[in-house]
Write a protein that binds this DNA or RNA. Sequence first.
DNA 1: GAATTGTATATTGTATACAATATTAAACAA
DNA 2: TTGTTTAATATTGTATACAATATACAATTC
Lengths: 210, 210
Amino acid sequence: MINRKPLRSQIIEVVWQLIVEGKLQPNEPLREVHLSKLLNISRTPLREALQRLEWEGIVTSAPGKGFRLATLSEEEVREIYPLRAKLESYALELSGIPSSDVLEELTSINKKMLKTNSPKELVVLDERWHDLLLSNCTNRKLLEMIKVLHRQSQRYEYAYMNMDDKSKVSVEQHEQIIKYLQKGELLLASKLLAANNVVGVEALIESLKK
Amino acid sequence: MINRKPLRSQIIEVVWQLIVEGKLQPNEPLREVHLSKLLNISRTPLREALQRLEWEGIVTSAPGKGFRLATLSEEEVREIYPLRAKLESYALELSGIPSSDVLEELTSINKKMLKTNSPKELVVLDERWHDLLLSNCTNRKLLEMIKVLHRQSQRYEYAYMNMDDKSKVSVEQHEQIIKYLQKGELLLASKLLAANNVVGVEALIESLKK
DNA sequence: GAATTGTATATTGTATACAATATTAAACAA
DNA sequence: TTGTTTAATATTGTATACAATATACAATTC
């Protein structure tokens, strides 16, 4: 079976990579002819991709002015992370205690997080950990919303990812969450997961201010 | 100042109206040439509008197969409403106690809900009531998500809106929520708001099964 | 020099054209 | 009849074209 992906979804990922790699800066205009030449595609699917990113809150647009990369702001951080916290802890409660296989895999990812010293890999692993933790949740709408929030928060994390001590604390919290789950303490795990989502917010905002 | 809206956002509203009025049926293919002729626009902004509705969960699409109106299902109802409950009660907690002006307006809308016997108007008033209740919430991402969930749930409500007793209960709950807020009981109000979001879910599913 | 108008250029928003794929049904064989 | 192949048609996906708007910059006035 051949995988036929629409161009727009491929473009979304490529543009996302450009953002992650810092090739595109916050508030930078995203000119359609320029970008479409760069990616060797026409403007139509590019616009579709940019509109999708706009709905995800990564890109903004004004009528007649076209698209630009959204700015980063303290206010947004204070919206995204607490909301992530709320949604993820709810999703965990819905998921129930994960299987022992999943718990093992969670432990394994967490160990990798401790070992790596690549901040970029850390972000990837952290997302994988959270996704896996919630993989048993059957509320797909909830999971979609969480995914959008992940992208939004990752934009900040890629931009300011030198926060060594934050990651240490986070990994320890992950461990503790796993322990709670092994003991069947779903609610405690959920509470700690919420906390885990907002750890480092203040540090992030400090970096942001500079 | 002249209000310049892109075609796509106008199209979204028109297509939404077609859905609400039952002119488009669940799972019905949305053919681009047909729709664009009907609305007297080209396919480009129409596709943009349909993609937006896809992201909102109102429309589905498969590569090469184009768009169709999403089907209605019990599973989706059981995802949407509890999520709405969670998000709205959180938003209310963030909003704090509304001003007395807002509380008055909430009472007034609620009275209209009691008076009307148009199910369609009831849906509109109910959304207005909930929006106004949360209008003081500063977390815009949260409000956006709630808005999307409102559209999703409204699709069901427009399709099966003969539930007289449900609306009675709902209006009474609204009253009680207002009373709690007047007494400064934010948390109780928030709890009841959550309950208000899931009242009628079972009745809705009953109608859905037929 | 600062502000303002006019003109050229760039950019977006929408429409159309073209190419690739999917659907239909018509012809044919088992 | 039932199923299979093939051709015709319809539909989508992408590219391009055109029109409307925005931006930049030079000319002009004060």
